[in-house]
């Protein structure tokens, strides 16, 4: 491996890294919002919306991100909606992640024993207070390990963004290999940058898990 080649690749990888992180985290934030809303309407059995959310979850959990991106990137312009490739990436990741997050939050909500709610109600708290103070924090606590797993999974899924011509890490590696044939160096940098992106998330996830351990229901 030639250190000079690695050095010369650095600026392009750094740029791709920033773009990947930007789209990745915006997508994950969107996934969080969509997942939360979807889990609520399913958990509280809100008529009509609950069915829509159910179909949404099944549709997006059971199709690959690449296919979803193609539909958004090439399909939406056909019905007159034109959005940038970056927005497509965020939207695609958000919709895919939302379906996973929805199931994560829903199982967290369902894991809380009914008696927890009853004991809060019996202290005179209103339904809204019980939800805000007891159910929501407990459900999130239960969901921490699964949320961390989802975040790592979604950040790795960004590697298909190259298919809609976003200059992410994967795109950059393929591009450089095509230009200079320094395969070893290009792939080394790719692994390096994915590790830099994901290792901190993994560590933060473990810390979050340790923090909530001992604060879960049923102990």
């Amino acid at each position: 491996m030639d250190p000079e080649v690695l050095k010369s690749y650095l600026p392009r990888y750094a740029e791709a890294f920033l773009l990947t992180i930007k789209i990745g985290w915006l997508g994950i934030a969107l996934a969080f919002v969509i997942g939360m809303l979807s889990a609520f309407v399913i958990h509280f059995r809100i008529p009509v919306l609950k069915r829509i959310a159910g179909y949404y979850v099944e549709l997006f959990r059971n199709t690959p991100l690449l296919v979803q991106l193609f539909f958004i990137y090439f399909g939406l312009p056909k019905v007159g909606i034109v959005i940038s490739a970056e927005a497509c990436g965020v939207l695609g990741l958000g919709l895919l992640g939302g379906s996973y997050m929805s199931e994560t939050f829903r199982s967290g909500l369902e894991a809380i024993p009914a008696a927890q709610k009853e004991s809060a109600l019996s202290l005179g708290m209103s339904r809204g207070q019980v939800f805000r103070e007891i159910i929501l924090p407990e459900a999130l606590t239960i969901s921490v390990p699964a949320i961390a797993a989802n975040v790592i999974f979604l950040l790795k899924e960004t590697s298909v963004f190259s298919a809609i011509s976003l200059m992410d890490l994967m795109f950059t590696a393929k591009d450089l290999i095509g230009l200079y044939y320094d395969t070893t160096e290009a792939l080394f940098m790719l692994v390096l940058f994915y590790t830099i992106m994901l290792l901190p998330v993994s560590i933060l996830g473990s810390i979050a898990e340790k923090t909530v351990r001992g604060k879960m229901p049923g102990q």
Partner: peptide, 14 residues
């Protein structure tokens, strides 16, 4: 006005 204590304690774990 009516307090209740349950078999399974039901303290808030968080």
């Amino acid at each position: 006005k009516i307090g209740m204590v349950f078999q399974s304690y039901e303290l808030f774990p968080h």
